[in-house]
C-alpha cells in the first residue's frame, strides 16, 4: 500500500515526533552534556579543554540549532501543549504509573524552564565561550545553585521516565514483563543521571575534583 501522510495523521506524526525527539536528540544530547561536563570532576583545565573542543567544532551554529535548540524547543513546546490536554487524577487513582504521568509533566516544565535559564547564563551571556570559572561564579549565588540542583534532578527524572514511556509507546516493550524491564531501565538511567548530575554541580560549587589523582 503506498502511503502519504494525510491531514488526519498530522496529529499522530507530531506526537510521535515529540516522543522521538525526547530520546533522540534531546536525551542523547543530555547524555553527551553530562559526559562532557563530568570532565569538571577531573580538573578545571580538563573541563575547559573539553569545553573549548566543543566550542570549536565545525558548523557549530548549525549543529547547535538542528540537533539541540530546535528539537528541545519542539519537545518542550509540544510537551506543554500535551500537558494542557491532560488532566491529572492522582488523588482518585494514586497508582505508580499515574504518579509518573503527573510528575513527568511537572518535571518536564521545570526542566524546560531550567534549560532556558541554563542556556541564557551559559550560552547567551558567555557568547558560547563558557569556562569553569563562569560556572563556578554563577553557583556562588545560592538561588542559582538551588535551581541548578533542581534542574539537573528534574531533567534526569524526566529522561528516565521518558525512556520508559518511549519503549512502551513505540511498542518496543510490549509485554508486561518487557514493560517492567523497561521501567527498571528507565529508573536506572534516571538514577544514574541524577547522581552524575549532582556530582558535577558539587564539583563546580565546591571546586571539588575527585578524579584529579589521574593527573598526579
Amino acid at each position: 500500500m503506498s502511503r502519504t501522510a494525510t491531514r488526519s495523521e498530522t496529529d499522530y506524526l507530531l506526537r510521535k515526533l515529540h516522543s522521538f525527539t525526547g530520546v533522540i536528540p534531546v536525551g542523547a544530547f543530555l547524555a553527551e552534556h553530562f559526559w562532557s561536563n563530568s570532565y569538571a570532576l577531573v580538573s578545571r583545565a580538563q573541563y575547559d579543554a573539553k569545553s573549548q573542543e566543543l566550542q570549536t567544532i565545525p558548523f557549530r551554529v548549525a549543529v547547535e540549532w538542528l540537533f539541540i535548540f530546535l528539537p528541545m524547543l519542539y519537545h518542550g513546546g509540544y510537551g506543554i501543549y500535551i500537558w494542557l490536554r491532560g488532566k491529572s487524577n492522582i488523588s482518585a487513582y494514586p497508582w505508580v504509573g499515574n504518579w509518573l504521568y503527573t510528575t513527568q509533566r511537572y518535571t518536564g516544565l521545570i526542566a524546560f524552564a531550567y534549560i532556558g535559564w541554563h542556556l541564557y547564563t551559559e550560552r547567551w551571556l558567555t557568547h558560547g565561550k563558557s569556562t569553569y570559572t563562569d560556572v563556578e561564579d554563577l553557583l556562588q549565588n545560592p538561588y542559582a545553585l538551588a535551581f541548578m540542583f533542581i534542574g539537573v534532578l528534574a531533567s534526569s527524572f524526566h529522561l528516565g521516565v521518558g525512556i520508559w514511556n518511549f519503549l512502551c509507546k513505540w511498542g518496543l516493550a510490549a509485554t508486561v514483563k518487557a514493560q517492567r524491564a523497561a521501567g527498571a531501565l528507565g529508573a536506572t538511567v534516571g538514577f544514574a543521571f541524577s547522581v552524575i548530575g549532582v556530582l558535577i554541580v558539587l564539583s563546580f560549587w565546591l571546586n571539588w575534583h575527585p578524579f584529579d589523582f589521574y593527573l598526579k
Partner: peptide, 18 residues
C-alpha cells in the same frame, strides 16, 4: 492514528488497573 487516536495515550497505565 486519527486525531484522538493512539498517540494520545501518555502511558499513565491507569486503564489496566481499573
Amino acid at each position: 492514528m486519527e486525531p484522538g487516536g493512539i498517540q494520545d495515550c501518555a502511558n499513565a497505565q491507569n486503564c489496566v488497573k481499573a
